[in-house]
Amino acid sequence: KELVLALYDYQEKSPREVTMKKGDILTLLNSTNKDWWKVEVADRQGFVPAAYVKKL
């Protein structure tokens, strides 16, 4: 499975999103959308801005 690194803190703004902290390592589930990537963090799945994460 592919992992991404959170480059910035992100606070979810809708139930479809997830909160992450800078430095978090997240499991990447889907990166087909260039703006929003689906990730899993702490047993929750949701979207984060693609610009806020980097593939490892």
Score class of each variant (00 low, 15 high):
Lys1Leu: 14
Lys1Asp: 08
Lys1Glu: 09
Glu2Tyr: 12
Glu2Ala: 12
Glu2Met: 12
Glu2Trp: 13
Glu2Lys: 10
Glu2Val: 14
Glu2Pro: 11
Leu3Asn: 06
Leu3Gln: 10
Leu3Arg: 11
Leu3Val: 08
Val4Pro: 00
Val4Glu: 00
Val4Trp: 07
Val4Gly: 11
Leu5Ala: 06
Leu5Ser: 04
Leu5Arg: 09
Ala6Phe: 02
Ala6Arg: 01
Ala6Leu: 02
Ala6Lys: 00
Ala6Pro: 01
Ala6Ser: 05
Ala6Gly: 03
Ala6Cys: 13
Ala6Val: 11
Ala6Thr: 04
Leu7Asn: 03
Tyr8Thr: 08
Asp9Asn: 09
Asp9Gly: 06
Asp9Leu: 03
Asp9Trp: 04
Tyr10Thr: 00
Tyr10Cys: 02
Tyr10Trp: 11
Tyr10Arg: 02
Tyr10Ala: 00
Gln11Val: 14
Gln11Thr: 14
Gln11Arg: 11
Gln11Tyr: 15
Gln11His: 13
Gln11Ser: 12
Gln11Ile: 15
Glu12Asn: 08
Glu12Gln: 13
Glu12Asp: 05
Glu12Ile: 07
Glu12Lys: 14
Glu12Ala: 15
Glu12Tyr: 05
Lys13Val: 09
Lys13Asn: 10
Lys13Gly: 08
Lys13His: 09
Lys13Pro: 05
Lys13Arg: 14
Ser14Gly: 13
Ser14Leu: 09
Ser14His: 12
Ser14Ala: 09
Ser14Thr: 13
Ser14Asp: 12
Ser14Val: 05
Ser14Lys: 08
Pro15Ser: 12
Pro15Trp: 09
Pro15His: 10
Pro15Glu: 12
Pro15Asp: 12
Pro15Val: 10
Pro15Thr: 10
Arg16Gln: 13
Arg16Ile: 12
Arg16Ser: 13
Arg16Asp: 13
Arg16Cys: 15
Glu17Tyr: 06
Glu17Ile: 04
Glu17Pro: 05
Glu17Ala: 07
Glu17Cys: 07
Glu17Asn: 05
Glu17His: 07
Val18Trp: 05
Val18Phe: 11
Val18Lys: 01
Val18Ser: 02
Val18Cys: 10
Thr19Arg: 06
Thr19Phe: 05
Thr19Met: 04
Thr19Cys: 07
Thr19Gln: 05
Thr19Glu: 03
Thr19His: 05
Met20Asp: 01
Met20Thr: 03
Met20Ala: 02
Met20Tyr: 02
Met20Ile: 14
Met20Asn: 00
Met20Ser: 01
Met20Cys: 06
Lys21Cys: 12
Lys21Val: 10
Lys21Tyr: 12
Lys21His: 10
Lys22Trp: 03
Lys22Gln: 10
Lys22Ser: 08
Lys22Asn: 04
Lys22Met: 08
Lys22Tyr: 05
Lys22His: 06
Gly23Glu: 02
Gly23Cys: 09
Gly23Met: 04
Gly23Ala: 03
Gly23Val: 02
Gly23Ile: 01
Asp24Lys: 03
Asp24Tyr: 06
Asp24Leu: 06
Asp24Arg: 04
Asp24Ala: 08
Asp24Cys: 08
Asp24Phe: 06
Ile25Thr: 07
Ile25Leu: 09
Ile25Trp: 05
Ile25His: 05
Ile25Ala: 03
Leu26Ala: 08
Leu26Asp: 00
Leu26Gln: 01
Leu26Glu: 01
Thr27Phe: 13
Thr27Cys: 11
Thr27Arg: 12
Thr27Met: 12
Thr27Ile: 15
Thr27Asn: 09
Thr27Pro: 15
Thr27Glu: 12
Leu28Asp: 00
Leu28Trp: 02
Leu28Ala: 02
Leu28Arg: 00
Leu28Lys: 01
Leu28Pro: 01
Leu28Glu: 00
Leu28Asn: 00
Leu28Thr: 01
Leu29Gln: 04
Leu29Met: 08
Leu29Cys: 07
Leu29Ile: 14
Leu29Pro: 00
Asn30Phe: 07
Asn30Gln: 10
Asn30Arg: 07
Asn30Trp: 08
Asn30Lys: 07
Asn30His: 08
Ser31Tyr: 08
Ser31Ile: 06
Ser31Ala: 13
Ser31Asp: 15
Ser31Gly: 13
Ser31Pro: 06
Ser31Trp: 10
Ser31Met: 09
Ser31His: 09
Ser31Gln: 10
Thr32Tyr: 10
Thr32Phe: 10
Thr32Asn: 13
Thr32Trp: 10
Thr32Arg: 11
Thr32Asp: 15
Thr32Pro: 04
Asn33Lys: 08
Asn33Gly: 11
Lys34Ile: 10
Lys34Cys: 11
Lys34Thr: 11
Lys34Asp: 11
Lys34Gly: 09
Lys34Met: 11
Lys34Ser: 12
Asp35His: 15
Asp35Trp: 15
Asp35Gln: 14
Asp35Lys: 14
Asp35Glu: 13
Asp35Gly: 09
Asp35Cys: 14
Asp35Ser: 13
Trp36Ala: 02
Trp36Ile: 03
Trp36Tyr: 07
Trp36Gly: 01
Trp36Glu: 04
Trp36Ser: 02
Trp36Leu: 04
Trp36Cys: 07
Trp37Cys: 04
Trp37Arg: 02
Trp37Asn: 01
Trp37Lys: 01
Trp37His: 03
Trp37Tyr: 07
Trp37Met: 04
Trp37Pro: 00
Trp37Phe: 07
Lys38Cys: 14
Lys38Pro: 01
Lys38Tyr: 15
Lys38Ile: 14
Lys38Arg: 11
Lys38Glu: 14
Val39Ile: 08
Val39Asn: 00
Val39His: 00
Val39Ala: 01
Val39Gly: 01
Glu40Leu: 09
Glu40Ser: 10
Glu40Ile: 10
Glu40Arg: 10
Glu40Gly: 10
Glu40Trp: 08
Glu40Met: 11
Glu40Phe: 07
Val41Ala: 15
Val41Trp: 07
Val41Phe: 13
Val41Asp: 13
Val41Glu: 04
Val41Met: 14
Val41Cys: 13
Val41Tyr: 12
Ala42Trp: 12
Ala42Val: 11
Ala42Met: 14
Ala42Pro: 13
Ala42Gln: 13
Ala42Asn: 14
Ala42His: 15
Ala42Glu: 13
Asp43His: 12
Asp43Pro: 12
Asp43Ser: 12
Asp43Arg: 08
Asp43Phe: 10
Asp43Cys: 13
Asp43Tyr: 11
Asp43Gln: 11
Asp43Trp: 08
Asp43Leu: 09
Arg44Gln: 07
Arg44Asn: 06
Arg44Trp: 04
Arg44Ile: 07
Gln45Gly: 07
Gln45His: 10
Gln45Trp: 08
Gln45Cys: 12
Gln45Lys: 11
Gln45Asn: 10
Gly46Asp: 00
Gly46Pro: 01
Gly46Glu: 01
Gly46Arg: 02
Gly46His: 02
Gly46Trp: 04
Gly46Asn: 01
Phe47Cys: 11
Phe47Pro: 00
Phe47Val: 08
Phe47Gln: 04
Phe47Asn: 04
Val48His: 01
Val48Gln: 00
Val48Leu: 02
Val48Gly: 01
Val48Ile: 09
Val48Tyr: 00
Val48Trp: 02
Val48Glu: 00
Val48Cys: 03
Pro49Phe: 03
Pro49Glu: 02
Pro49Cys: 05
Pro49Gln: 02
Pro49Trp: 04
Pro49Asn: 03
Pro49Ile: 04
Pro49Gly: 02
Pro49Val: 02
Ala50Ile: 04
Ala50Lys: 06
Ala50Met: 05
Ala50Cys: 08
Ala50Gly: 05
Ala50Trp: 02
Ala50Tyr: 03
Ala50Gln: 07
Ala51Tyr: 09
Ala51Trp: 09
Ala51Phe: 09
Ala51Asp: 09
Ala51Arg: 15
Ala51Pro: 09
Ala51Asn: 13
Tyr52Trp: 07
Tyr52Gly: 06
Tyr52Phe: 13
Tyr52Pro: 01
Tyr52Ala: 11
Tyr52Leu: 12
Val53Ala: 04
Val53Phe: 06
Val53Arg: 00
Val53Ile: 08
Val53Cys: 15
Val53Leu: 15
Val53Gly: 01
Lys54Ile: 15
Lys54Val: 15
Lys54His: 11
Lys54Met: 15
Lys54Trp: 11
Lys55Thr: 08
Lys55Phe: 09
Lys55Ile: 14
Lys55Arg: 15
Lys55Ser: 08
Lys55Pro: 10
Lys55Ala: 08
Leu56His: 06
Leu56Ala: 05
Leu56Lys: 04
Leu56Phe: 11
Leu56Glu: 04
Leu56Asp: 03
Leu56Arg: 03
